[in-house]
């Protein structure tokens, strides 16, 4: 082995990497917010009394969960223009990740909602609470609290998955790393640094989101 490691071109390009980090965070957090909202819709459909709504939701969830996110984003980015919908790389990335996240979020939150015992809801009704309030305070908040760790790992997973969006030229971290690679040919150093940055981000979010959860869900219950 006679290769001399040289990290200087990687460090010299720090503004580019910072741009990439911001892109990654922007895309994954937007997709998480939209995905959670859409996921709640699918969860309600999945638990509805109407068999039609239920089968649509099940079909959607299973379709998304059993196909690779790379194929989903290719479908959105390359396939949708055929339907007359032309999206930029970043828009396609956010749309694909949102659709992907919605399926997982629906299943995660459903697990939480099903963990609420019926007695709780009946108690709320006995106290004369409005059904919206029952849903908000007795079902939804404790359900989210129960599945909060799973939602956090879903977010981290999505942040890691956003690296695939480089393949549709969405400007996130891996995209800039590949650009840098083609300019400097320092592949080893670049992908090593890239790995370290992703590792740091996932560790940071795992700790930070854990702390936020501790504070936000600190009310006594259970």
């Amino acid at each position: 082995m006679n290769y001399s490691f040289d990290f200087s071109p990687v460090f010299a390009a720090w503004p580019m990497l910072l741009d990439g980090i911001l892109g990654t965070l922007r895309m994954s957090s937007l997709s998480m917010v939209f995905g959670l909202a859409l996921g709640l819709v699918f969860m309600l459909m999945r638990m509805s009394k109407l068999p039609m709504l239920r089968s649509i939701a099940i079909g959607y969830i299973e379709l998304i969960r059993n196909t690779p996110i790379l194929v989903q984003v290719f479908f959105v980015f390359f396939g949708m223009p055929a339907l007359g919908i032309r999206l930029s790389g970043e828009q396609a990335a956010i749309l694909a990740m949102t659709l992907n996240c919605a399926a997982y979020a629906a299943e995660i939150v459903r697990g939480g909602v099903q963990s609420i015992r019926p007695g709780q809801i009946e108690a709320g009704r006995a106290l004369g609470m409005h059904s919206v309030d029952i849903y908000r305070f007795i079902v939804f908040r404790p359900a989210i609290r129960a599945v909060y760790p799973a939602l956090c790992s879903q977010f981290i997973l999505m942040m890691l998955n956003s690296s695939l969006m480089s393949s549709v030229s969405a400007e996130e971290l891996t995209y800039f790393a590949q650009t840098l690679d083609s300019q400097t040919f320092r592949s080893f150093e670049i992908y090593f640094t890239l790995g370290v940055i992703y590792l740091a981000m996932s560790q940071f979010f795992s700790i930070a989101l854990g702390l936020i959860g501790r504070v936000y869900f600190s009310y006594p219950a259970k």
Partner: peptide
């Protein structure tokens, strides 16, 4: 678990 699979593959392939 803390790095993307894509980066792991790039690392092996180019490293």
């Amino acid at each position: 678990q803390g790095t993307p699979l894509l980066v792991q593959l790039f690392f092996v392939y180019f490293g």
